[in-house]
């Protein structure tokens, strides 16, 4: 459990480190990257499940975007594997249900079910990779600001920023609680419900007290319900953003309608 909590803190800190690199991708406005990611996801998910080669072609986007942003592709691929278990669980049924042959590789007949399974896995991996590249190159606070600029209500974006701001703090507090109980439980790894309930209640009560202190401190400093924008989250929409959106949208639409099967 403590490992999971530590991993979560590491992930949060890593996200803060990666969003301020001096590459072209990092300098772009969050809105342009968000729009391109949405166009990519819609195009990717609209490819029929039996079109393996068409789906494979969509790997162009994460490869190129990772390179433009100066990211190594292998860690992004490794992190995207998180999606595999649930997608594989759903896709597994297709293998048994759809058994007619779709194409042959020499003597090997590939069924519709296996193709659908592979396409589902690919979709899952590519969509997560697109999302990881978006957040790694933009950062959470800038992305929240972009959402606000795109019309999402301020009450909600303020809430998103608040959760992010206090997450590290509460994760550290959970680690401290977990260490305290581990020190007294003589090797027991899981806690029975009653102990767990008291543990979580302690965390909750501390959370409420903390929220009260924060609320008073913020009111004393003139908080009116609006979170001020941090200096590095302020970006302008420039010509590069328009070019990025138009360029990638054209490529993605092209990928969607150009089929390698028909070309060869």
């Amino acid at each position: 459990m403590r490992e999971r909590l530590t991993r979560a803190i590491d992930r949060l800190e890593a996200a803060e480190r990666t969003d301020r690199c001096p590459t072209l991708l990092h300098r772009l406005d969050g809105r342009s990257k968000l729009l391109v990611t949405l166009v990519y996801l819609v195009a990717l998910l609209s490819v029929p499940l039996t079109q393996l080669s068409d789906t494979l072609l969509f790997a162009v986007y994460p490869f190129l975007t990772a390179s433009i942003g100066g990211f190594r592709y292998s860690p992004i691929l490794r992190r995207s594997l998180i999606v595999v278990p649930f997608v594989a669980f759903i896709g597994l049924f297709d293998i048994f249900q759809e058994r007619e042959t779709l194409f042959r590789i020499g003597p090997l007949a590939v069924s519709v079910g296996w193709t659908m399974f592979a396409v589902l896995l690919l979709r899952g991996l590519l969509s997560v990779q697109a999302l990881l590249l978006l957040i790694d190159s933009t950062g959470y606070p800038r992305l929240c600001r972009s959402l606000q600029q795109l019309g999402v209500s301020e009450a909600f974006t303020t809430q998103l920023l608040f959760v992010h701001r206090y997450l590290c703090l509460l994760l550290r507090e959970s680690i401290a609680l977990s260490m305290a109980i581990d020190a007294r439980s003589f090797g027991r790894s899981n806690y029975p419900l009653r102990i767990w309930g008291t543990l979580i209640c302690q965390l909750l009560l501390r959370t409420f007290d903390r929220a009260e202190r924060i609320g008073r401190a913020m009111t004393a400093r003139g908080f009116t319900g609006r979170m001020p924008a941090l200096p590095y989250t302020r970006t302008r929409w420039r010509t590069a953003d328009t070019l990025y959106v138009v360029g990638w949208s054209a490529v993605i639409v092209g990928l969607r309608f150009v089929s390698p099967e028909r070309l060869l």
């Binding site: 459990m1 909590l5 608040f162 703090l169 509460l170 507090e173 959970s174 029975p192 419900l193």
Partner: peptide, 16 residues
């Protein structure tokens, strides 16, 4: 905001 962070942290603590 803080209870949101609490839920996130609480989701990582398992019970038997």
């Amino acid at each position: 905001g803080v209870t949101g962070a609490f839920v996130f942290a609480a989701q990582m603590i398992n019970f038997a």
